[in-house]
Design a protein around this nucleic acid. Structure first.
Lengths: 341, 341
DNA sequence: TGTTAGCACTCTTTGCGTTCGACTGCTAAA
DNA sequence: TTTAGCAGTCGAACGCAAAGAGTGCTAACA
């Protein structure tokens, strides 16, 4: 357990370092945060904080920088909440009020405002994990192709196409649709992924169309897999504008990690959480990208669609601001989705 | 008009600079490209080439680097075509043969191979400017929503949804579908964008549903507008790995430009060109992003869908390789699309 | 026992001068 | 017109010294 003074000092180091990215000296703390004690006292405290693993001294004649452990402690216990400036709040309202269109539009708008305000990279992940199927529709496009549409109780999944043999008529397509619905109605989309073709279920007059059936089911599989997640990202270059990325190699490493959307999506989603909950991951040890921290909030985007809104920046991130922004955003989204239903 | 020897020397400078990114010295040219004359002679030639604007000398004790004018001349007249290595050709085949799924999948695959092989950023832009409408389908999703699908002769456009009043039955939807088809079949998708609702065309028994009709048409408008262009990009960090971007500010500037997808799409598409045609834009003067060159090829992706495949890299780009790769890719795509019909 | 002033010590940063090496441009001769 | 040779220029690399930033330690003090 840390003494009050140690907490104050640690908080000062973190706050100062977040702002300036420079090692923090005892004298600076004394002058700007703790005028009631001397720099020598602070030096002593800093020394013990270092031995406890909260601080790091790049070299002997430098100040201290916070370790990831310190940031963790800061986020958990030291940081006090802050509010957005009027300007920022207004900016968010503006970006989001105009875009009451499709979910995609909202996602785009969200990533853009967040990146603009926080100066970090923003990601939104949409998940349709547990949608149940209302119907499967087959639509003859009259050009030898069959459009397969999966309708779910919350929305329409992306569609897929299948080539049609010449001798297929409306009757047979209707019949096929009936069968598919019999099999899949009420099931979860995710069940497609490990689904094996049920030959036994299909009656004899359909035997010759097994191949087509299989194709359709393959499309369904693929479509539901792809549709499970939708990742949108914006502002990669906002993050690399920060001083930890002045070394191009760092910048490149960061961008490479950002290119792996699956991995990013996993980071944003792998610890569920209720609507409006916040998660902060600091550093590679907590599964964030190397040298980075990720702040995530979850929002319910509809009865069966859940979304994760995240901010990715350096470990030395302005957590207060980021949390405030995400708070505001998720509040608006929840409101917006609520209205939509 | 340049003498043969000047051309040879200029070509040598460009080739060497593309490979090494270092200023090229007279001695190097003599030893590796022109053993038949002395370095002093080459120095004289270099000097006149510089005064002609083809070369730049960073400082007096350095070699020469090519100007954008030199690259232009190189691409137009000096460069000889090259072939892909067996490994590269194989890689392309592999990436593209597996992905005969949707157009989106192919686009993604294309950007990935290109970035992988060339080590530059790759962009694909798909345009549906003049698709004509085969049919408009209304699909009752049995949950109070109506799915509007526009079917075109080449493919299905993204769909949109409309809320349905309670008292709508199948009959009325079928009727509405009939009307919409009567109005729009055979028209260009682009015609939606400036379309005004034709009250006069709708007969009396439908008058009460004007509002719904209007809604549907709004969806159609929006959907066709959004679908006009689709931009996919990959490998931003491949480009910034090159030495002209070791300064993080350059890297950032580059990435910022890459974030403006509309601008990029315009660069890739604003000078039409036939199927398979190649365009090379060098430097800001030719409308490429600053410090960059853009090589584009156009492919027909269907009767009414045209695509542009582009590579964005530093002005000091390996044009031979890039052109060879794009050539191969467009050949495959043309073949692939041909088969699909 | 906790706090503080003072000072020695360490290490980085900056600036400067020197050397080294890379090329060129020029001159004069072939 | 070409070429050898040489003087001259400029950047890169290196070493060194001085300046600056901060600390840790010691000894005194409350």
């Amino acid at each position: 357990m840390l003494s009050d003074r140690k907490k104050k000092i640690l908080c000062a180091v973190v706050d100062s370092y977040i702002e300036s990215a420079n090692p923090v000296a005892s004298k600076e703390i004394q002058e700007e945060y703790l005028p009631e004690c001397s720099s020598a006292t602070i030096r002593n405290e800093l020394s013990t904080l270092e031995s406890m693993g909260y601080l790091i001294q790049p070299h002997v004649s430098a100040g201290r920088i916070p370790s990831e452990k310190a940031f963790r402690f800061y986020v958990n216990e030291l940081m006090f909440e802050s509010n957005l400036t009027a300007r920022e709040a207004e900016m968010i309202e503006q970006y989001l009020s105009r875009k009451v269109g499709s979910l995609e539009d909202v996602m785009t708008a969200v990533t853009h405002v967040i990146a603009e305000i926080t100066n970090y990279t923003s990601v939104v992940v949409k998940e349709d994990m547990s949608d149940t199927i209302t119907a499967i529709k087959l639509l003859d496009l009259s050009n030898g192709k069959l459009l397969v549409v999966i309708v779910t109780d919350s929305r329409v999944l992306k569609d897929g196409m299948v080539d049609l043999p010449d001798d297929f008529d409306e009757q047979i397509i209707a019949q096929a649709q009936k069968w598919l619905n019999k099999i899949f109605r009420g099931k979860h989309v995710s069940e497609f992924i490990n689904f094996n073709y049920p030959f036994a279920l299909v009656n004899d007059e359909f035997a010759q169309y097994n191949a087509l059936f299989k194709k359709i089911i393959d499309v369904l599989k693929k479509v539901s897999l792809m549709n499970g997640m939708d990742v949108e990202m914006y502002g990669e270059n906002k993050t690399i504008a920060h001083s930890e990325f002045t070394d191009v190699n760092n910048a490149r490493k960061f961008l490479e990690q950002m290119e792996n959307k699956e991995k990013i999506a996993e980071i944003l989603t792998n610890d569920g959480g209720a609507d409006g909950s916040m998660t902060v991951k600091i550093g590679a040890a907590e599964n964030a990208p190397e040298g980075c921290a990720v702040v995530t909030t979850r929002v319910n985007l509809g009865e069966n669609v859940s979304g994760s809104i995240g901010v990715i920046g350096p470990v030395r991130m302005n957590y207060r601001k980021v949390l405030a922004v995400l708070d505001k955003i998720s509040e608006i989204i929840i409101d917006l989705v609520g209205k939509g239903e």
